[in-house]
Design a protein around this nucleic acid. Structure first.
Lengths: 330, 330
DNA sequence: TATACTTAGTAACACGTGTTAATAAAACCG
DNA sequence: CGGTTTTATTAACACGTGTTACTAAGTATA
């Protein structure tokens, strides 16, 4: 329609440097493209370039985990934003935690240029294979014994801060409820921060003072019920998940005890509702959006072969002091 | 490597019917494919077939909306599952609410075969254009004055049930806090259900008894504070969002009133935490996962040119009776 | 045995793009 | 004016697949 070859059209529309096209021709191409409502076909581009301009966001969490994970949307949006900024798309893929190999297809069949793995199992062999084969890969969370680049919240430091806060308030009998079974790294890290804070303060930690939660309020209720039967009863509890803390708080109230008077609570995550708990929850705020953004942005750098300044990034969390820890009561 | 042509390979691996290939050849092809770790290239397929086997999931919600939307992950997972079952992928795309045309590119450039639009603006012109052009499109929610196929919760019916529940408990002064500004369809529907329940019971509805929320607990706190100053003070409030209800509940407690003794509350959504509110929240449970599943499954049918049994689907919600409405107190 | 039909396989085209090497025309230089 | 460089444009190939039309050989039928 513009009276030129396909090649010329390609040159003009891609605004290629080092090729000279007269202004008149250029304009004719633009006009024709507009008139024909022309849009370059992605499949054609992908085929010839070998690039898909797409990030694979693989979620390994089980459905229960996800439903309880109040800030997964923020993480996803962070990835989206980072991708958008570089003209990338985001392909979402959920895989059952035990379904290894479910996502390798994305790479093998060239659907995506790289993969973000959220919440992988410790023994996930597929991600290691992809990494070894030179596939651009980022992990959200941590994988031991590998040099796979990752972005994670410095959960241990956050947990340590949370517990230190309780220690500073004078508590000596501090228990903990984990966010998940200790087979999960994120649960281990938070417990390690708890233990470290106790150790630094010269406090002892009893095994029975650590109860396991599993993402749900119900598990928090059960765990707290067990803790209330401990002797001596703890005067403060670090609950490594706000959602789990919600259940724990209900257990405390049902037992007729008061927060923070009888029992101080510090949570973890700072979900949007935490501020509206009764009492408002002292907790650790996670940079959920920033986490997603960072992991997306770094994966794109890997894809484009720009180097990473550091292989493993740990993002800082922030102590948000509200009423449940008793710090605001004078 | 198998000593046959590409054509034969294609026939064998796609298991094409109506073509006869000897068992020996077939096996040689399989063996070679395995040995070479062969995976068909998606770009090549898409190019020749014109199909991308991908659904575009477009989220129009603003970030604040999304962060507060506790069951967005469930919806997304529902779509994922439906897609997975038919061998489709899901491409996620967030667009600013005012950024029309942001997602048409997905179709124009053939990234996706169809689009699911979640939470569109009422005046979204782009979706109407796509629909008119014959693009497979599904809307989550509702769009007035169109015949675009949609899946939605029957929010009006749910709201009506919630309010009827309060009426059945003997309440006559029933106020409402909306989940969002009334410019949003979902807010309108829930309000309409509220009004209908009142009307059917022969009750009058005062304008000042309807206060607006905007997805956040903070807005619920503010709205409830206004309601508490009304004379006569309502004896029950229907809050059209559990998250907003969380803020409303805090306002009630701050005012020294008791739930449900002084003020009964019914929420909407049944977020995972609703059961652990203090008091546990009577609310309307939405089939979030089912919603996502239905919209995904129907979009695929549209893409494959199977007809839809009905153009607009309304899914039922369910009244979950807990303590906040006072029904369990005898 | 001549004919028709089935079986097994392939050559050739098409999809829509990016890129390299080549060509023709124009401009510059001595 | 002959030769060299620059400018504007294109022909031809490549990417990896699905599909149609065709061939050749084998097998049943009359």
């Amino acid at each position: 329609m513009a009276g030129v070859s396909r090649t010329t059209v390609s040159f003009v529309l891609n605004n290629l440097e080092g090729v000279s096209i007269s202004a008149g021709t250029r304009q004719r191409v633009f006009d024709a493209a507009r008139k024909l409502n022309y849009h370059p076909n992605a499949a054609g581009r992908k085929l010839v370039s070998g690039k898909s301009n797409t990030l694979g966001l693989v979620l390994c969490q089980s459905p229960e985990q996800v439903f309880a994970d109040a800030f997964l949307p923020q993480v996803i949006f962070g990835v989206e934003q980072a991708a958008l900024q570089q003209g990338f798309h985001v392909l979402l893929k959920q895989v059952e935690p035990d379904d290894t190999k479910g996502y390798a297809r994305l790479i093998n069949e060239n659907h995506v240029d790289g993969i973000i793995l959220s919440g992988p199992r410790q023994d996930d062999a597929e991600i290691r294979r992809l990494y070894r084969d030179g596939v651009p890969v980022m992990v959200m969370g941590q994988l031991p014994d590998t040099s796979i680049p990752s972005v994670d919240v410095d959960a241990a430091a956050g947990a340590r801060t949370a517990v230190q806060h309780l220690i500073d308030l004078g508590h000596r009998q501090i228990a903990m409820i984990t966010n998940a079974p200790l087979t999960y790294t994120s649960a281990q890290q938070r417990r390690d921060g708890y233990l470290l804070a106790l150790k630094n303060a010269g406090l002892k930690s009893a095994k029975s003072y650590i109860q396991e939660g599993n993402y749900t309020p119900a598990s928090g209720f059960a765990a707290m019920t067990r803790l209330l039967e401990e002797a001596p009863r703890p005067t403060a509890v670090f609950v490594a998940s706000d959602v789990v803390a919600m259940g724990a708080i209900l257990a405390i109230k049902r037992a007729g005890l008061r927060i923070p008077g009888d029992l101080a609570i510090v949570g973890f995550d700072d979900i949007p509702l935490a501020e509206y708990f009764d009492p408002p929850l002292t907790t650790i705020r996670l940079p959920a959006f920033g986490l997603g953004w960072a992991v997306g942005e770094r994966l794109i750098r890997l894809i484009q072969n720009d180097g990473l300044d550091q292989n493993n990034v740990f993002m800082d969390s922030e102590l948000i002091i509200r009423d449940s820890s008793g710090a605001n009561i004078h």
